[in-house]
Design a protein around this nucleic acid. Sequence first.
DNA 1: TTGTACGCGTTATCAG
DNA 2: CTGATAACGCGTACAA
Lengths: 346, 346
Amino acid sequence: MTIKPRAKIRIEEVARTAGVSAATVSRALNNPALVSPQLRAKVEKAAKKLGYVAHGAARALASRRSHALGAVVPTLGNTIFSDAIGAFQRRLEAENYTMLLATSDYDEEVEYRNVRTMIERGVDGLMLVGATHGKALYDLLEASGVPFVQTWAPAKASPYPTIGYDNTALTRIVVDHLAGLGHRDIGMVAGLRRNNDRVRARLVGMRAAMRRHRLPLPASRIVFTDYRIDAVRAAFREMQRRGPMPTALVANNDIVALGLMLEAQSQGIRVPRQLSIVGVGDLEVAAHLHPPLTTIRTPKQTIGTLAAEYLLARIHDRPVELPAELALELVLRGTTAPPPRKDKTV
Amino acid sequence: MTIKPRAKIRIEEVARTAGVSAATVSRALNNPALVSPQLRAKVEKAAKKLGYVAHGAARALASRRSHALGAVVPTLGNTIFSDAIGAFQRRLEAENYTMLLATSDYDEEVEYRNVRTMIERGVDGLMLVGATHGKALYDLLEASGVPFVQTWAPAKASPYPTIGYDNTALTRIVVDHLAGLGHRDIGMVAGLRRNNDRVRARLVGMRAAMRRHRLPLPASRIVFTDYRIDAVRAAFREMQRRGPMPTALVANNDIVALGLMLEAQSQGIRVPRQLSIVGVGDLEVAAHLHPPLTTIRTPKQTIGTLAAEYLLARIHDRPVELPAELALELVLRGTTAPPPRKDKTV
DNA sequence: TTGTACGCGTTATCAG
DNA sequence: CTGATAACGCGTACAA
């Protein structure tokens, strides 16, 4: 039964109707263990009857704790981020914490501004994406003393707390798979490198893996694209323009892979008979494409959940360890196969 | 040039190094017009030099304004919401407001709790999804006096400020199109109705439109599904089990439409030759499916932006009008065609 | 135009 | 276990 209060109820009022002091009300509500059961019941009843809702700002000012954590991600358009954010927020909710969210659109300055604003709002902790940020940002973070955690990169990628997987290893796994099938001419359809260390790490991993297999990887075999289907299809054609098509393509993610499949299909190129394609992310739709997409499953929700847990632990001075890196899983499906015989090159 | 401060800088310190009073610093920073240009410059310099960041809680307590708006959406997994949220946040960012975000997973109780938490945190305004909420929620909202706006429904759907389009009209447009092509047996693959007035309104619109066209719509022609591809495909088969397939299917959204197309394809059912399908949302991928998906384009970002603008206006006591409803657009592509002749029924 | 002094609503400290 | 009281850091009448 909620009663509609006529005006803002303050703690004083609750205290008065419960016949105790404001201090006791505060304790009864925030630290029930410190108060006698009867008193506690009395206070709770009064609070509920009056519809008392504590004033967050006052509480934050007095307790020096806002019960809010911030998150800044490049975009919500990419489901890997919205999934991670969803998990992050649900974990916070369970501890009665609130999430402040902002997007940077892969712009370092916007990210800086958003982080600054969040610090100003008094967040108790901050989740960032990527392990390489400008010095100004790190300075700001250190100056404020706000606990923060970086995501989507392995711990070793940064001296600061970081949680994610190794993007270098990711492309290695893909190349190993493809090379194992017999591919020798592998191309990469990468994302835009600007302010994106995940993409850069994958490039590094790709080059290293190809070298290990003693396979050539000329610059012409790497094209860059954003994640709009149109752009991806254009990237596909761009690669065709640069010479005979590779027999396999490593896509930056499942959306890119989808774009590649669509373009291949519309050109009558058979996947995987004539062209193998590997995605990253294992979006739900990946399993349902024709053919179903071979991809790498990445721990999206885990990243969000662990980031929340790490920050919560830091805030409450509980000891925490971050895993060195999260596991990746190659999901073998229908878009990879041995390369076509020479005389059947695309 | 950012200097790393050793500890928390308060306004006092800035005042001291600028050689003015704290009050002047506050004014210079928040209301530059009220201060002489030289003084203002001096203060700004000192603030920057010290890396001063105002304490949000203290500011909120004193000014009775948190500069934060809350948003509660069912899920971030549906891109219509993540798109709208993205637009909402960007609009806030432009006015130096911060967004608090929580998801309800279509659960009324969770939504209530999240709203309550946000009010407690002192949000200056709130964005909700849907125009039908529990009485408890409206009571809470009214008691707190926090401006709020409902989204994804037309203004007429609620006595409270609401911004969106008419879901009834949406299905009418679709049915008109399909009936115009000659379809007489039209089915609907709807979303789950639980705490989702959008889905319910579409059902109402569907029934009304079919009636207007004097077309039958037995209950067997309506199946419900969540938005996982697996579930959608199962829903497709469920409809087949109920009798001969309709010649056209109205999908709750593009994801559902995609699932239907995948299932049809894997059964060798030709779209649109044997079966027409219409989606809702016009996701980016819709135009790239085979065949490209006929769908309704909904104003996702517009909803987010307008919601932000409405709340901002309310907060600053500016006059605002909300549009009665936002426009929908039928995007004709390749998944709709006249029904097959009788002897070619699926 | 600028400074003084108080209040914002809560929590934490310290007696009792 | 409970109550009085002093912060918490800033904004803003009001006075100068």
